[in-house]
Computed example of a mutant assay.
Amino acid sequence: MQQQIKILSALMVTFLLLLFPLCAAASDQHVTVHPGDDVTLRCEAGDVSISAVEWTRADLEPQYVLFYRDGRLERKQQHPSFKGRVELEDRELKDGDVSLTLKNVTSSDSGRYECRVAAGGSRRTKRANIDADPIRVIYLEVTDSEDGNFPHGHVGLAAGGVAVLLVAAAVSVAVWRYRRRTDQRSEQSAADEAGNHQLMCTSAV
């Protein structure tokens, strides 16, 4: 019985180790659009008081796609290519919605976008002062190809789900086979014991 528990524990640990990176990857999003389109990059901070919102791209200098503080956009720190083309979908930040709308996209807009927020009454202006990981990472791809309409994010999530199901199935099959072998050994032991008992009875007669 203890051996069975150890095997089940090892299988479940393996399953969880495989599941964790899939769940982590699912938190990122891949969005594909065509040149000239408008796109909204979704990000929600939850039910918190928000003093500032940052959208950044680490490959740019300055990195700011959008910086919003105290009810207005801070344009001095914004990268020139985004001026006049980006805005928050809801400036009132209702329900923690800090989604970014990017207008008239071009191929140069392709990249990794990170969303951060500063909670509370903070009035700090530099991204380094928001000591937090991004709450959403979005990979934006701007392409002329018709294949660009293919929903990469959904495919990745579906593939992750299939992988999880396959692992779960493999664990179930392994457990079933182990139990079957255990039952067969038990039945064989019982049969051998019955045979020995019958032989002893025959010898006694």
Score class of each variant (00 low, 15 high):
residue 2 Q to N: 13
residue 2 Q to G: 15
residue 2 Q to V: 13
residue 2 Q to H: 10
residue 3 Q to C: 09
residue 4 Q to C: 10
residue 5 I to V: 15
residue 5 I to E: 15
residue 6 K to Y: 12
residue 7 I to A: 15
residue 8 L to P: 03
residue 8 L to Q: 15
residue 9 S to I: 13
residue 10 A to T: 11
residue 11 L to F: 12
residue 13 V to Y: 07
residue 14 T to W: 13
residue 15 F to R: 09
residue 16 L to A: 15
residue 17 L to R: 09
residue 17 L to E: 13
residue 17 L to I: 12
residue 18 L to D: 03
residue 18 L to R: 05
residue 19 L to D: 07
residue 19 L to V: 05
residue 19 L to E: 09
residue 19 L to S: 04
residue 20 F to S: 13
residue 21 P to G: 03
residue 22 L to F: 01
residue 23 C to Y: 11
residue 27 S to R: 11
residue 28 D to G: 04
residue 28 D to V: 02
residue 33 V to T: 07
residue 34 H to A: 12
residue 35 P to H: 04
residue 40 T to V: 11
residue 42 R to W: 05
residue 43 C to I: 03
residue 43 C to Y: 01
residue 44 E to R: 09
residue 47 D to M: 08
residue 48 V to P: 15
residue 50 I to M: 13
residue 52 A to Q: 13
residue 53 V to L: 06
residue 58 A to L: 10
residue 58 A to Y: 07
residue 61 E to G: 14
residue 66 L to E: 00
residue 67 F to W: 03
residue 69 R to S: 10
residue 71 G to V: 08
residue 72 R to G: 00
residue 73 L to W: 02
residue 73 L to T: 15
residue 75 R to I: 14
residue 76 K to C: 04
residue 76 K to F: 09
residue 77 Q to H: 12
residue 77 Q to R: 14
residue 78 Q to M: 14
residue 79 H to V: 02
residue 80 P to C: 04
residue 81 S to W: 06
residue 84 G to Q: 11
residue 84 G to Y: 04
residue 84 G to R: 07
residue 87 E to P: 00
residue 87 E to L: 02
residue 87 E to K: 01
residue 88 L to V: 01
residue 88 L to P: 00
residue 90 D to A: 12
residue 90 D to C: 06
residue 91 R to E: 14
residue 91 R to P: 08
residue 94 K to R: 15
residue 96 G to M: 01
residue 100 L to Q: 04
residue 100 L to S: 02
residue 101 T to D: 00
residue 101 T to E: 02
residue 101 T to H: 01
residue 104 N to S: 08
residue 106 T to W: 01
